[in-house]
């Protein structure tokens, strides 16, 4: 039984805060849970906070892209927030540019981004 990462909800937004380095199984569980929750709570936005992560490997990088694609299919936007400089450099060196994933500096800016997107989507 591997650990599960809690998924919090504020309004229409789901928030996932990753606090420890991820194992592959945890990553898969998270992917599954998120898809379930987006449907169950009819969320329109997902924020994944990876500010505590010091290591992001290509598997986690791909997970982020996959989660973004899944939620797009379910009509929710995904924002990855709090990526550390070292992690960003590593991902670039690995050749992963996470196309299609939007990012923000911190949780607050991520929420603002989602709100902006939601209000411009309504018009």
């Amino acid at each position: 039984m591997s650990e599960r990462i809690p998924i919090l909800r504020i309004g229409d937004t789901l928030i996932v805060s990753v606090q420890f380095d991820l194992e592959d199984q945890t990553v898969l569980n998270l992917q599954e849970d998120l898809a379930d929750q987006i449907v169950a709570r009819s969320a329109t936005g997902v924020i994944i906070d990876i500010g505590a992560l010091e290591i992001v490997d290509s598997f986690v990088g791909r997970m982020l892209a996959t989660v973004a694609s899944i939620s797009r299919v379910l009509d929710a936007r995904t924002v990855v927030v709090g990526m550390r400089p070292a992690v960003a450099i590593t991902l670039v060196e690995l050749g992963l540019s996470l196309g299609g994933v939007s990012t923000a500096l911190d949780l607050e800016k991520g929420l603002a981004k989602l709100n902006r997107a939601a209000s411009s989507g309504l018009q």
């Binding site: 924002v79 990855v80 927030v81 990526m83 550390r84 400089p85 992690v87 960003a88 450099i89 991902l91 670039v92 060196e93 540019s97 996470l98 939007s102 990012t103 923000a104 500096l105 800016k109 991520g110």
Partner: peptide, 12 residues
């Protein structure tokens, strides 16, 4: 390009 992509990854 690398620098710009890295900045974008961080949300800038």
């Amino acid at each position: 390009l690398k620098t710009i992509v890295a900045a974008r990854l961080m949300g800038a």
